[in-house]
Write a protein that binds this DNA or RNA. Structure first.
Length: 705
DNA sequence: TACGGGAATATTTTT
DNA sequence: TATTCCCGTA
């Protein structure tokens, strides 16, 4: 025992040790960026297990299952005991697990299907159409409406009240919106669908209607730990309270400076008011930073020091000063990408592996241009955030077959499946689906398909394949094999790039091998963001949104597109609160770096439709002094002075400003040849490496070369 | 009724 | 840049 205690002493500082050995009851660990949070949690679990706690009775709620898994693996190697029974994952996946087992108590029997965001949007679109769309230009689109409903749900607000708070511009549409919301709820009920919010809402409803369920769970999970507590919302806090009701053994870990999920209802309040909610709470603050150099930390502390709200700690560096972070101004996006590529190559020459480097940005599409350059230079990379693997049409297709076998009420997937058949359009698909939903049994549905008259050999074949899925429950991989055999021949007709899609699907098949239960497989896929684990050991540069980079670290980090409008995003202009979240987001971004940090922005950016815009440096970095941030403008002399986004607009006359064949220069695309003279204020130019582009003369002015 | 092609248009962040 | 929508044709 003494020996083991020494291991703790040796590997933890005083604050960490205090957290690890905290007695029973509630405790709050404020853990600054890079302060050894994961290590602390790992040792805490190990310590509990050493005290004789059954690992099966520890619940570890983390941001991703991967994070939980990683921690448990570390505990295993530390103690040499199996912690596989420890439950972990996200709130949403926990909710899904509970509902699958006991949802029957509140009328969710069978196999409810989890609906992702695009599915929800699709459903809403149909409901809007069905209700008669009088083309109200002011009415919200399907996407905005789904978004709004979710916003309101996650804050546990009354709908009307929520609309007034979050969308006052639609206040006079409340009755209409409310009926759409109701129709949406009905649709989900009818088809056994659960959206993300339902996983939390129904779990809470289950707890409320059947208190014994919550009590039993609480009694089972003797110790509950929650990571990234600053990003939990009201519903999640309620879940936690229910789960610890019998014992109060709760440890939450978080950092109010890193709260970046306000848009989905995260409440920093949960962490700030923790001591109020749990007066006996023990509070430990971890301020010692083991990750970043002093120079990087100084920048981070400065960035956050301008925040409107006082934060609960200040990071102290453990590492030597290191290099000053650099801020590089570039003439345009093209230049920014070129700069990054050249720096990456230089860093690699210095011996830094690709996997120790990351490029971070505010929104998924900010990296499009860079991705092209990386591909050209043959630099291997993975991208986190942005579009998901499971959102690709081909993956959704494959899963649709699986979902239908699992939950035959799933109209959306039925339609998707039928759309794969030649000679079957939306009209007939609709008829077939409503026929299918009437039928009570799998066999009768198969027969219905096989006897349906019109596109016949095809429907028969579909029926045959589904027949194989309908018998005894299959393992996910066995089922997918059957589906894939049927679906593969369809690929070339459905997509332009079947080869690429095929690779994706094979990846999915590999992932499925791990699972025995189809529900669990589908749930994980939709709730746990599988980010192509298969080759994670490989040497690849990481591209990531800042949100998806949370909790990760690299020796060298680039943050790109630090301009007003992108970072902070224009969407955050509205309120002070949102702006503060953007600031914390930058704080999260820069604290990912251990040794080298580069902040870049292009002076000119292309806007939608080929227009041009002048960018300002982000307000977060514009005023920082040279001692904190070293500024450079390596390509200044190349800045082409070309155009103006705002009026005065200049329209080139059709009478020959740019005749066909004239060589012109364009700052982004290089030199090109005019293919068609200006017409309707547009001109078509062919560029060497970018092909033909139609440019708007209103906004862009080409320079004759 | 299905389907292809062309044009218009929208682009935060995540479970 | 990718998706969606709309229209003309088979």
């Amino acid at each position: 025992m003494t020996e083991k205690t020494n291991i703790y002493r040796k590997n933890l500082n005083a604050a960490q040790l205090e957290a690890v050995q905290a007695p029973d009851g509630p405790s709050l660990i404020i853990a600054g960026a890079g302060s050894g949070k994961t290590r602390t949690l790992v040792y805490r679990v190990a310590w509990l297990v050493e005290q004789g706690i059954d690992p099966g009775r520890i619940l570890l709620l983390t941001f991703t299952r991967k994070a939980a898994q990683e921690m448990l693996n570390r505990v295993e190697t530390m103690l040499g005991i199996s912690c596989r029974e420890i439950s972990g994952g996200t709130f949403h996946s926990l909710g899904y697990r509970i509902l699958r087992r006991q949802g029957g108590l509140i009328g969710l029997s069978g196999h409810p299907t989890v609906m992702d965001r695009p599915d929800a949007v699709e459903v809403m679109g149909r409901l809007i159409k069905a209700q008669g769309q009088d083309r109200h230009s002011e009415a919200p689109g399907r996407k905005d409406l789904v978004e709004l409903i979710s916003r309101i749900n996650n804050r546990d607000l009354d709908f009307e009240q929520g609309v007034r708070v979050f969308a006052p511009q639609w206040e006079n549409l409340i009755p209409r919106l409310n009926s759409l919301r109701q129709a949406f709820e009905d649709y989900k009920r009818q088809h056994f669908l659960l959206d993300y919010d339902d996983l939390l809402l129904y779990t809470l409803k289950l707890f409320a209607d059947h208190p014994e369920v919550a009590r039993t769970l609480s009694a089972h999970y003797q110790y509950v730990m929650v990571d990234e507590y600053q990003d939990t919302n009201l519903l999640q806090a309620q879940m936690v309270r229910a789960l610890i009701q019998t014992h109060g053994n709760l440890m939450v870990v978080g950092d109010d400076s890193q709260s970046i999920y306000g848009f989905r209802g995260a409440r920093v309040k949960n962490i700030l008011e923790f001591p109020k909610s749990f007066p006996q709470a023990r509070i430990v603050t971890l301020e010692e930073n083991y990750r970043s150099s002093q120079a990087i930390l100084t920048l981070a502390n400065t960035v956050i020091s301008f925040a409107a709200q006082r934060h609960s700690k200040c990071l102290r560096a453990h590492n030597p000063a290191g290099e000053l972070p650099r801020c590089i101004e570039l003439p345009h996006e093209e230049g920014q990408s070129q700069f990054i590529v050249s720096q990456l190559k230089a860093l690699q020459k210095q011996g830094l592996p690709w996997s120790e480097t990351a490029v971070l940005f505010r929104a998924g599409y900010h990296s499009f241009n860079l991705e092209i350059h990386l591909q050209k230079s043959g630099i291997p990379f993975v991208k986190y955030g942005g579009r998901k693997l499971t959102e690709g049409a081909h993956i959704k297709d494959l899963l649709a077959y699986l979902k239908v076998a699992q939950n035959p009420q799933e109209a959306l997937s039925w339609e998707r499946i039928l759309r794969h058949l030649e000679g079957l359009g939306p009209k007939r698909a609709g008829q077939i689906v409503s026929g299918l939903l009437e039928l009570p049994e799998w066999d009768s549905r198969i027969r219905f398909l096989q006897e349906y008259p019109r596109p016949q050999p095809q429907l028969g074949r579909l029926g045959e394949m589904l027949n194989l899925l309908g018998g005894e429950p299959l393992s996910p991989s066995a089922a997918l094999e059957i589906i894939w055999e049927y679906y593969q021949p369809l690929l070339p007709r459905l997509f332009e790039d079947p080869e690429y899609r095929k690779k994706d699907i094979e990846e999915l098949l590999r992932v499925s091998n791990v699972y025995t239960d189809v529900d669990e497989f589908l749930g994980d896929l939709l709730l746990e963001t599988p980010d192509g684990d298969a080759d994670s050991g490989q040497e690849r540069l990481v591209l990531s949104t800042v949100h998806s980079a949370k909790g990760l670290e690299w020796r060298a980090v680039f943050v790109i597109w630090l301009t007003e409008g992108r970072f902070p995003s224009t969407h955050a202009r509205e309120s002070q609160e949102e702006l503060e979240e953007e600031r914390r987001l930058l704080y999260v971004a820069v604290t990912r770096a251990k040794e080298k940090l580069f902040l870049t922005y292009p002076l000119q950016g292309s806007e939608r439709g080929g227009g041009w815009q002048h960018n300002e440096a982000s307000r977060f970095i514009a005023l920082l002094p040279e001692e904190i941030l070293r500024r450079q403008t390596p390509m200044r002399e190349n800045v082409p002075r070309v155009f103006q986004a705002e009026p005065p607009r200049r329209v080139v006359r059709e009478d020959g400003g740019y005749p066909v064949g004239l060589k012109v220069y364009h700052p982004l695309f290089g030199s090109g040849i005019v293919e068609e003279p200006p017409q309707d204020r547009k001109i078509r130019v062919k560029f060497r490496s970018y092909g033909s582009k139609v440019l708007h003369l209103d906004f862009a002015r080409l320079e004759k070369a």
